[in-house]
Amino acid sequence: MLMTQTPLEPLIPLRFDRNGTPTLDIDHVHKSFGNYVALEDVSLQIWPGEFVSLIGHSGCGKSTLLNLISGLENPTQGMVRLNGQQIEGPGPDRAMVFQNYSLLPWMTVTQNVLEALRAAAPQLSNLERKERVESFLKMVGLWQHKSKRPAELSGGMKQRVAIARAFAIHPQVLLLDEPFGALDAITKGNLQEELLNMWQLEAEPVKGQEDQPSQKKNVVMVTHDIDEAIYLSDRIVVMSNGPKARIHQIIEVNLERPRSKAQLVDDPEYLRLKAQLLALLSVELAHHD
């Protein structure tokens, strides 16, 4: 099933059930913009509960791939399926966190989350929506700033609101487009940790098997930060350089969860992965321009 696995990769026990229907099935997707071919023949399956990172140099089409999953763009050829159904446009089952926060600046923190919830969960009563907004803003530690507008918040706080907004609509898949790219290292670290906590907390029971251990959401994240990708992901998809970008290699991250950054620093597996990714991105896929 998996494309271009390196033959040297040791056989590892799969922690994800890779039989049955993948949550996301990217099936021989091509995408061009006019004459520019951004993606060429990309296939990837993402299985229930997986956290997958897309990494590569700028212009490698990783954001394009994310936009195809979100439905903001449609593939030129091939298709993307969610639970076996072809994706034809954006939907509340896939929430997105944008790099530049994309909060509506004329609304308060509360209104930003509430308005998304009103659109994505029209079946809820006003009271239920307000309660949900409150619980998610408390989760990201911004309840005391609920009446502020985005302009009054720091970058880290804005991105927390955007994360709360995305989680609040209870999506099946969370799409993150370089979510921490514009943040300083300390804020970035805190937010990564919070994201993992929320991801862990917001696990949803599998339909029909409510007594079983609950299923975590899928996360697909675009990043160009190697450490971030290893710390957060189950699999890292390395894209080749554009134009005509493809999946160059898929790397499994076999690190126990919950992970601790302090312990990862001298974990041999972590160091091996980091060296492998560095070699891939700075030697094999180095820009020659």
């Binding site: 994309s102 308005e115 998304a116 009103r118 659109a119």
Partner: peptide, 23 residues
């Protein structure tokens, strides 16, 4: 970006006009 927010969260046409476009 604002259009994308409206699309990703599936804003209704009324929400789009009065909560995004008009403000």
């Amino acid at each position: 970006d604002f259009k994308n927010v409206a699309r990703v969260f599936r804003f209704t046409p009324a929400q789009y006009v009065f909560k995004v476009l008009f403000p």
